[in-house]
Nucleic acid binder design. Structure first.
Lengths: 111, 111
DNA sequence: AAAGTATATTACTACATCGTGATATACTGA
DNA sequence: TCAGTATATCACGATGTAGTAATATACTTT
């Protein structure tokens, strides 16, 4: 092969999937609500003001992706962020968005 | 307000949108193909082996999001990554995926 | 066991967007 | 001006998934 620029379609799919995981406002809201705390589903539902079925679905997705840990305690289920790198991702995105925003405030037309 | 955990829905939408931008394998493939080079559309089409209309659409999306710069030169249009932070995002995701993968190889069942 | 509570799942509608063929637009050279 | 090339846009079918009401499941308490 000419160079090592080849990249497996499966790898692209996995990376894209990771980003897709973070591409839903509701999931971001849940992650932001959790922070570094452990919370049960009801509290997350209350804190986010969202539908219980929807919260459960998103918690399941995040847990399935290895981003949340799940701990059953009697009747309730507690979730906690187990992958701190997602916050690094969010921070990177946030700071970039902020600088784009600042540029716009100064009337820059650069791409 | 009780704490500063409140986060604007519009902000969540913007952050999610940024991640959604990166959640398509085709766009990742284009970004990976570009690297730090400048390339015109035809060459990107050839390099990715994808449909021209599709490539143009994704280039437009990436440019609209401020990730690519566009430079017209006669009949051709040249694109170049103008936001290097996307590579940082990809690196973070890749290294995380790799470590998840390594864990699985060692039979860990941790979340 | 029965009733109550917390969470997960199901079934469904609504909506966004991907990929693509066809076509429009923009530019070049003869 | 006309033919040719490069890129963008349009229209459309196909697919994925968010949100939700209803229901199932799991656990606790009396």
């Amino acid at each position: 092969m000419k160079n090592n620029n080849e990249i497996n379609d499966a790898a692209l799919e996995m990376i894209a999937g990771r980003f897709r995981l973070m591409s839903e406002p509701m999931r971001l809201k849940i992650l932001h609500t959790l922070g570094d705390r452990e919370m049960n589903v009801s509290d997350i539902v209350t804190a986010t003001g969202a539908n219980q079925a929807n919260v459960s679905k998103h918690l399941g997705i995040l847990h399935g992706a290895g981003v949340l840990s799940r701990r059953k305690d009697g009747l309730t289920v507690n979730y906690k962020v187990s992958d701190e790198t997602i916050f690094e991702l969010c921070d990177l995105v946030c700071s970039r968005l902020k600088s784009l925003f600042d540029l716009r405030r100064f009337g820059s037309t650069e791409a």
